[in-house]
Design a protein around this nucleic acid. Structure first.
Lengths: 263, 263
DNA sequence: CATGGGCATTAACATTTGTTGGACCCGCTT
DNA sequence: AAGCGGGTCCAACAAATGTTAATGCCCATG
């Protein structure tokens, strides 16, 4: 039971069942954080209390600029976004994909300076969490703080999995792994449709995920199609053979920490 | 000013100048955490209070096993270690290198299950921090908690830089970047000697860092030597031309968050 | 309806990276 | 001294990946 509540700031804290309607937009966040450990209504209210205004971003727009020092962290309510770095030769590398319920830059709360940019890969509906209020949260809600910390740790675990994929998997296996990961992550926040999900990236953008040329990205997608484990058209990915896809990817979801247990 | 101290548990809290002698082994940790923000003596004492026993590991020994659920996190007092994953075909990929002052598995405090192993790359002297005491710390020392959280965030920032290097840098640039990063990180914990540092990895192990074959790893090291920016022999790397090395690597240390500021 | 741009796809060719096999060196053991 | 094992380094060839250029499709727009 969480006792340290900033109830003076959050009128909902004492009556969680009366969560105001606009808070429903945070459902994805609750699903995301709640997958790892129980999330009390009081904690949900605290999270809601840290939120400030919403905003929409168009596809291709920068949500956070590299080099900036944001005073808030950005939660994706809907849409797909990505962290990226650009090199001097113009090459771009995505370092993560962010789905609804993800904070795209929670790390900026403590890292302070953004060393990379964040771009909307589809129309994005986001909401900003004020760093001052997050700080208060760390002073008064230790369990919730641990859950937010955990959220950034899962980020790190995903990064490690990407490093392994880039370093030691075949490109086909890498892509298969990414499809598995995205499917599972989207499923948690209820953005899958049967065995399908919407993936708005062009092949050029996918190439910036896997670190390939566009031409080779096309080859690799073709290879995965040819094996018959996925269909991929109109920005919709459908997994035709989950078992075999997982085999090709050597996908083990342990790193996503989807087990609900005390943290 | 930090007020929530577990002074009942840590007798040093009220007399920080009387830190017991064996605590000097934690100097690297203090240097590491203290580079990001001021670390009070009381906080140092709290950290010391979370520590339990020490242990030595021989080169090649597993410090933490993949799949395990440790109840403590491991701090490197001396030596070099690495996180790694092994694929079915036997391929190994290191996902990070850990230097003195690093917690190799602080993330296990909340992630619970290790999804990768940690191996000693040189004789390692380590010390274990009890998860129960870390948890207490999160309840009572918010600022210190944020610093530990920050430590894992820097981990993540390093991961992202590795992803960029693997995806979009030439192999020579990737290696140059790694040398820059290691030099800077080792300098923080005073493990450099002028422009040199000790790097006990064989070329086969380096290949598992960059995700290359041993033969190509040898070529890439040769290339960097040929340009004349580093000398590399007897497990000692000497940077001959820092400026040019940094240029080749496009190295920007921002991601290491070495600026001391309120967190 | 014509047109131009973005995207997916393919072919041909260039470059990078992996594989195999072996030479050489060094420290250690027998 | 001989032999062994690990490590570095190199050559020759094979495979993966990048580059350049071209084609066709779809769709928004004039």
């Amino acid at each position: 039971m969480q006792s340290r509540l900033a109830s003076d700031r959050n009128t909902w804290a004492s009556a969680p069942e009366a969560l105001s309607p606009e808070v429903a937009v945070l459902e994805s966040l609750y699903l995301n954080l709640g997958q790892h450990d129980a999330l009390s209504d009081a904690e949900k209210a605290l999270l809601a209390g840290a939120m400030t205004f919403e905003r929409h971003f168009a596809t291709g727009q920068d949500i956070v600029a590299s080099g900036s020092r944001p005073t808030y962290s950005t939660l994706i309510l809907d849409g797909l976004a990505a962290r990226y770095k650009v090199l001097e030769d113009g090459g771009r590398q995505f370092t993560s994909l962010q789905v609804p319920g993800d904070f795209v830059d929670l790390h900026a709360f403590l890292l302070k300076t953004m060393d990379h940019g964040i771009v909307a890969l589809s129309p994005c509906h986001v909401m900003f969490a004020d760093h001052g209020r997050l700080r208060t949260m760390t002073e008064q809600a230790p369990h919730l703080t641990r859950l937010l910390w955990l959220d950034t740790l899962v980020d790190g675990a995903i990064h490690r999995e990407w490093i392994v994929a880039m370093g030691r998997r075949s490109k086909t296996s890498h892509l298969a792994h990414l499809v598995c990961e995205l499917f599972v992550r989207l499923q948690v926040v209820q953005r899958t449709n049967g065995m399908s999900f919407h993936l708005p990236l062009s092949q050029a953008e996918m190439a910036d995920v896997l670190g390939l040329s566009v031409v080779h990205m096309n080859r690799v997608i073709g290879a995965l199609r040819k094996v018959g484990v996925v269909s991929w058209a109109n920005h919709t990915v459908t997994i035709l053979d989950w078992h075999r896809l997982q085999e090709i990817a050597e996908f083990d979801p342990t790193y996503l920490s989807m087990m609900r247990e005390p943290r």
